[in-house]
Amino acid sequence: MYTGIVQAVRPLLDVAIYPGHRQFTIDLTPELLDELKIGASVSVEGTCLSVTEIHGTQVRFDAMNATLERTNLRCLQAGQGVNIERSAKMNAEVGGHLMAGHIATTAEVVELSIKDTGAFITFRVPPEWAKYVFPRGFLGVNGCSLTVADVDDGVVTINLIPETLRQTTFPRYKAGELLNIEVDHQTMVLVDVVERTLKGTLARQP
């Protein structure tokens, strides 16, 4: 589990492509390496990946094709930075909201605006997932726990504070690029239960 608070943006040193998967090599800081072991889970751009190799500060992760198809990891290139969060420890403060690192879908960036008066990002969520997104609700975007400002026909707007811009990869994203989206699990369960209940009620009506 993760808290949705990105700990650092770290450089992606290499992307190796193999049949069925890709291997990502990321340079981590001493703080992020603390007690890190093979098999440990780390959030990379919001995607839960397992450590496969550790060589000094260089840590490798494998992502299977099924993961690549569902996330924006397939778009990553060496030289870019990626959002990193170590898995949460017991009794750790949850500054964002609990996240699993299981990406539901990708969303296309519509606009990123960074001005002195404020910053925001808008992106289009596929219809089958947009039903789980509500104004003032939580949404995991590239591993960052964010509050939704507005939703209009599947286009989501989120305001970005200076600290979020400083601590994440959002500033490098451009219109047309993809973001990793993790919907709030409790919201998803609630919406699905209400949908099933309504369908069952309508089915029983004469």
Rank of each mutant, 00 (worst) to 15 (best):
K115V: 01
L112V: 12
W129E: 02
T147V: 11
K89L: 12
A119Q: 08
Q77C: 13
V82P: 03
Q77P: 06
V109K: 01
E111P: 01
A130M: 06
L146D: 01
V82H: 03
N72I: 01
G140K: 05
L139E: 05
E108C: 11
F138T: 07
G118A: 03
Y132T: 04
V109P: 05
T122P: 01
L73K: 06
D116K: 15
L98D: 02
I103T: 04
G95Q: 07
S145K: 07
K89P: 01
G137N: 10
L139W: 05
C75D: 15
S145I: 09
V82D: 05
A88W: 00
H97G: 05
V109T: 06
R86P: 02
L73T: 04
D116H: 13
K115L: 12
T117E: 13
A92C: 06
F123W: 04
F134K: 08
R70D: 09
L73R: 04
S87A: 15
F138M: 13
K115Q: 15
N72R: 12
V141N: 01
L139Q: 07
A78E: 03
L73D: 05
A130F: 03
W129G: 00
Q77I: 11
E128Q: 15
I84E: 02
I103F: 04
I84P: 00
N142M: 13
T117R: 12
P135K: 10
R86W: 02
A107Y: 00
S113I: 10
A78P: 01
C75M: 14
V133I: 15
A88Y: 00
E85F: 09
V141W: 02
N91M: 13
T147E: 06
A119G: 06
E108T: 15
L68W: 08
G96Q: 02
V125I: 14
V82L: 04
A107G: 01
E85K: 08
L68T: 08
N142T: 08
C75N: 15
L68C: 12
L68I: 11
F123S: 04
Q80N: 08
P127W: 01
V133M: 07
D116V: 10
T105H: 09
F120A: 13
P127T: 13
E93M: 14
N142P: 09
T117A: 12
E128M: 14
E111A: 12
E108Y: 00
G95N: 06
G118P: 03
T71P: 01
A88M: 15
T67H: 08
V94Q: 04
V109L: 04
A100S: 15
A149S: 14
G143I: 11
M99T: 13
E108P: 00
F123V: 05
A107M: 00
E108V: 14
T105G: 10
P127G: 11
T106H: 06
T117V: 07
Y132K: 04
T67G: 12
E111V: 05
N142C: 13
E111Q: 12
G118I: 02
A107D: 00
E111Y: 00
Y132L: 04
M90D: 07
T105Q: 07
V109R: 02
R124H: 15
T147W: 08
V133L: 09
Q80A: 12
V94M: 13
L73H: 07
Y132I: 03
L146C: 03
V141R: 01
A119P: 08
G101Y: 06
I114V: 15
Q77F: 06
V148G: 06
G101W: 09
T105Y: 09
S87N: 04
A104K: 07
C75K: 11
V94T: 10
A104M: 12
